[in-house]
Amino acid sequence: MSLLELKQFAVSYGGIKAVKGVDLQIERGELVCLIGANGAGKSTLLKALCGLLPVAHGSVLYDGKAITHQPAHLIARCGLALVPEGRGIFGRMSVGENLDMGGYSRTDRAGIKNDLERVFALFPRLAERCKQQAGTLSGGEQQMLAMGRALMSQPRLLLLDEPSMGLAPLMVEKIFTTIRAIAQEGVTILLVEQNAKRALEISQRGYVMESGTIALTDAAEKLLTNAQVRHAYLGE
């Protein structure tokens, strides 16, 4: 049984059919990327999956259970964490409080403390700035915080929406390295990226999305050598 399975998943957004019947599976422990041009419907798909937008049609099976029309907070409590596009950190709260919010649904104090150590080991910068107001962090630090906050919920499936967007090249490298490290710890990841090359390089499988549908899906290394993908998304 797949960890996540979308069947004929469709979402309307602002009167437009942004996602038109997508089928997608993610197995436990996989790192899968979803690439595609701006406006292909990638972010809309993630938001609807998490309950932030209504699903127009189709179903979402998570761990074998249908979560299709559940409210966002209940989906989050199942162990599905979205790092939203634009990071969505709480700017007027401290870095530490943001991380606390990540563990909001948990009650195991020892586990929370343990995961906090883990996040600080992954992002030492966050430990240094724990008391600082999150809104004063740089873009890269905010991305680290958003990812660290998602990890605090002990996710079984981590959804990353454009984590490298707007970051300096060095920080982009750091973020991709970290995504791979998180995957190696056993967290299943669905990565949505416009930086198709880097995304495919660290993923096992990839989906290519075009105007609301899945145009192509294959093992990541095959997509990297696919002439069509190279032409359309890798700029070659």
Binding site: G91, M101, Y104
Partner: peptide
């Protein structure tokens, strides 16, 4: 915890709900 949830909701109800806040 309630206070934190209130402040988080005041800043972004959507992101707060992603944290599991009702």
């Amino acid at each position: 915890k309630l206070g934190r949830a209130m402040r988080a909701t005041a800043q972004s109800p959507q992101v707060a709900s992603l944290m599991g806040v009702n």
